[in-house]
Measured scan of single mutants.
Amino acid sequence: MEVRTIKVFTTVDNINLHTQVVDMSMTYGQQFGPTYLDGADVTKIKPHNSHEGKTFYVLPNDDTLRVEAFEYYHTTDPSFLGRYMSALNHTKKWKYPQVNGLTSIKWADNNCYLATALLTLQQIELKFNPPALQDAYYRARAGEAANFCALILAYCNKTVGELGDVRETMSYLFQHANLDSCKRVLNVVCKTCGQQQTTLKGVEAVMYMGTLSYEQFKKGVQIPCTCGKQATKYLVQQESPFVMMSAPPAQYELKHGTFTCASEYTGNYQCGHYKHITSKETLYCIDGALLTKSSEYKGPITDVFYKENSYTTTIK
């Protein structure tokens, strides 16, 4: 009895394709271990004539594949690729409408935090270190965002349907971005203890939790000093293409032309909904596939993004 075979390709990165001759009487799992086709788990399936010449994702289970996976995804987590594939199996079914010149995501599976993050990423200057993220990001900007969303979920250790947080998501993504040249110098002034300067680099240099107003941050924000008295913390120097200011959701007025974009969060910790506000020729609110415009805006804002380049204080 002759062994019926077909020729397929296996890959971990969709760049390096490895030619395989597979036995049609055995499952993919018996031949390769966990195997995925377009995100779908085909591990328990036997090869079919229609699979001839198709590319299958496999887990990096030998040295060659491990090197290829690390170079593309910059992670050695053995569960990463499987999590990416199972997320992709959902995100490829989502709709990605162009809204006001940006790629958004039609609401499904509690994905409003991903839509808000995706919209924000198209408006701030950011370059990702893992080629996987950078490639998928370019495709997302062009309207094909399924891979990018699935990668975000995998890097953030999230599953489809789980509630997510924009600030946490951005923080994970910033860790995989090139923020080497970003720098922030802060000064804390206390009447009792004097003053202390701190220099922050990388992710810490672009994120701040405690106030939404970048102007206020430049002037000074009140913080408790270690001595128990009130101290003032203010920005001395900022070198970065953008800054992200966050605070627990509270009524906040966004003035046209003073910011790049913002995240609105309605609801409580267990259950809520994100919308995205962007400042173009007027203010726009993007909620999944829905767009509304207004000249002014007041609502429960939790993150505001500002364009920056270089700032030095005039406070002496």
Rank of each mutant, 00 (worst) to 15 (best):
Q30C: 15
V236E: 07
L163A: 13
P34A: 12
K316D: 15
S25Q: 13
F148I: 08
K293H: 09
T91N: 04
A262C: 02
Y234F: 09
S310R: 14
L235Y: 01
I286R: 05
V8I: 11
D23H: 09
E2L: 11
S295V: 07
L291Y: 10
T232C: 07
Q195L: 14
I45K: 14
T19K: 14
K307H: 12
G299N: 05
L17T: 09
Y252Q: 08
N187Q: 11
V58A: 07
E308N: 14
P60V: 07
V160G: 05
N49S: 13
A177V: 08
G267D: 10
V3T: 11
K127W: 06
Y57G: 06
T75D: 07
A115F: 04
I124A: 02
S104E: 03
T192Y: 10
L119V: 08
K219N: 10
L290W: 11
G33Q: 04
I45N: 11
Q251F: 15
K298A: 09
R66C: 12
L153S: 02
P249R: 00
T27S: 08
N157M: 07
N129A: 12
E253H: 14
G210Q: 03
C285E: 12
G82N: 09
G202P: 01
L235F: 00
V12H: 06
E162K: 04
S171C: 15
Q123P: 03
V22T: 10
I315C: 15
Y72E: 07
R66S: 09
T313C: 15
K201A: 08
E2S: 08
K93Q: 08
N147Q: 13
D287R: 01
H90Y: 15
N187P: 00
L186F: 15
N309Q: 12
K293V: 11
V243Q: 04
S294R: 08
Y84M: 03
M209L: 11
D135E: 13
E71C: 10
G161E: 03
N61T: 14
Q123M: 05
I15W: 08
A146G: 09
H90K: 11
F32C: 12
A117Q: 04
K54R: 14
L133N: 00
F174A: 03
F259I: 00
D180K: 07
Q98I: 11
G202D: 05
K280M: 09
K233I: 15
F217S: 05
V67T: 15
V22A: 14
I286K: 00
Q195K: 14
V99Y: 11
Y297L: 05
C149W: 05
L235I: 10
L200P: 03
E68D: 07
P78N: 13
R139P: 04
E204Y: 11
T35N: 02
I6D: 04
L212D: 00
T103G: 05
A205T: 04
A117D: 01
L114A: 02
K191D: 15
G267M: 06
T312C: 09
Y73E: 04
